[in-house]
Simulated scan of single mutants.
Amino acid sequence: MNIKPLTIGNLIAKIPVIQGGMGVGVSLSNLAGAVAKEGAIGIISAAHSGYLEEDFETNTLKANLRGLAKHIKKAKEISCNGIIGVNVMVAMNNYVEHVKTAIEAGADLIISGAGLPLSLPEITENSSIKIAPIVSSSKAVRVILNYWKKHFNRTADAIVVEGPLAGGHLGFKKNNLEEEISNFDTNILNVINEVKNFEKEFNKSIPVIVAGGVFSHDDFVKCLNLGASGVQVATQFVATHECDAHINFKKAYVNCKKEDIELTISPVGMPGRAIKNKLTEQLKNGKIKVTKCYNCLIPCNPADTPYCISSALIKAVKGDIENGLVFCGANAYKINEIVSVKDILNKLVFN
């Protein structure tokens, strides 16, 4: 198969793969830099990107913005100035500040989901950074891009369509999941067709990237044959030497079985896919008291949230995989060893 580069405006990735953003601390500069160095697109998650900064507990926002800038610059160095993007969730508090920090630090791309990024063109105005919303349906494409057209006379530089086999928070209702899984190919085609309308209107190419459950070379080829310009992959990159997470976190992926992967509740109000452990079992029996609020998510109220997702994710990425939240994609059980980023890309794209 003739593999074409992924072109997003003036950004050209010779390998049409975006490494998905994984917070907290799973995809920072080491992973993103290594992916971009190989010719794909590396993504840093803006979710608590400063969790290792000395003042994180006392001045969380300041630490996170400093950490984000630091990791963008370090990833650029590692990748020899490769393409580095940032995943910024709309549901985050201080969304604007994180986007602006990414721009100032030299990021090339903002990928934004967990809500509708309606204000993104305004925040990124007068910068050269590319913007790509994450959508779960053609309806979401219409809503976002019609709003951008009406209010900013702007459209997306790329679209990421994420399916129900993805890791972490899912943009689908739990009771519709099986139906969404069986309809995902049709959903991809519908998104591509919807995007074509905006390509014509703005006379520009808007590549569609498929995310969620892309694991094998066959998956990769199938997405391109459906008309996508590339894929976004996250789960596989956890089990790499270059991933920023603790070795225990990586081993949790290597050691998990299919039956260990389940949907759990989240303070965001969406289902989340994670590896079953002591924490997820506890949550089936009730709430876990929040002792400190990191003021991270807009929808979260410490008084009635089932648990603190920041605390749970930080514990996991630091290696406490029983009391922390280990988000993963549906195919994590297929991983059986820790390899290099280069190995993942070669197997996925070139087989």
Rank of each mutant, 00 (worst) to 15 (best):
1 M>E: 14
7 T>N: 15
11 L>C: 05
12 I>F: 11
12 I>A: 06
13 A>D: 04
14 K>C: 05
19 Q>S: 06
20 G>L: 01
24 V>R: 10
25 G>F: 01
26 V>P: 04
30 N>Y: 12
32 A>V: 03
39 G>E: 07
40 A>D: 01
43 I>D: 01
46 A>W: 07
46 A>T: 14
50 G>W: 00
50 G>H: 00
53 E>V: 07
54 E>I: 11
61 L>R: 11
68 L>R: 02
72 I>T: 03
72 I>M: 02
73 K>E: 08
75 A>E: 09
78 I>V: 07
79 S>H: 02
81 N>S: 09
83 I>A: 03
85 G>M: 11
85 G>R: 15
87 N>D: 14
87 N>Y: 03
89 M>H: 11
91 A>M: 09
92 M>P: 13
92 M>F: 15
92 M>R: 10
93 N>S: 15
97 E>V: 05
97 E>L: 07
101 T>E: 10
102 A>M: 09
103 I>R: 01
104 E>P: 09
107 A>G: 06
107 A>Y: 04
109 L>G: 12
110 I>R: 07
111 I>H: 02
111 I>T: 07
113 G>E: 02
114 A>K: 04
114 A>G: 06
117 P>F: 04
123 I>Q: 05
125 E>C: 08
127 S>Q: 02
128 S>M: 12
134 I>P: 07
138 S>A: 07
141 V>P: 09
142 R>V: 11
147 Y>P: 09
147 Y>L: 12
148 W>R: 05
149 K>H: 12
149 K>I: 09
152 F>S: 05
157 D>Y: 05
163 G>C: 00
164 P>R: 00
164 P>G: 03
166 A>S: 15
167 G>Q: 07
169 H>N: 01
170 L>E: 03
171 G>I: 08
173 K>H: 11
173 K>R: 14
180 E>A: 03
182 S>V: 13
184 F>D: 00
190 N>G: 03
194 E>D: 06
195 V>D: 05
196 K>V: 10
196 K>S: 14
198 F>E: 04
200 K>N: 15
204 K>F: 07
205 S>D: 09
214 V>H: 02
215 F>W: 07
217 H>S: 11
222 K>N: 13
232 Q>Y: 08
236 Q>P: 12
237 F>A: 06
240 T>F: 06
244 D>N: 10
244 D>Y: 06
245 A>V: 10
247 I>C: 11
248 N>P: 05
248 N>H: 05
250 K>C: 11
251 K>Y: 13
252 A>Y: 09
256 C>Q: 12
259 E>V: 07
260 D>I: 15
261 I>E: 02
262 E>V: 15
267 P>E: 00
268 V>W: 11
269 G>V: 06
275 I>T: 04
276 K>H: 15
277 N>D: 03
281 E>Y: 12
283 L>V: 04
287 K>R: 14
290 V>A: 12
292 K>Q: 08
292 K>E: 01
300 C>Q: 04
306 P>Y: 08
311 S>C: 13
314 I>E: 11
320 D>S: 10
322 E>M: 10
325 L>Y: 06
326 V>F: 10
327 F>D: 00
327 F>P: 01
330 A>F: 04
332 A>N: 08
337 E>P: 15
338 I>P: 13
338 I>K: 07
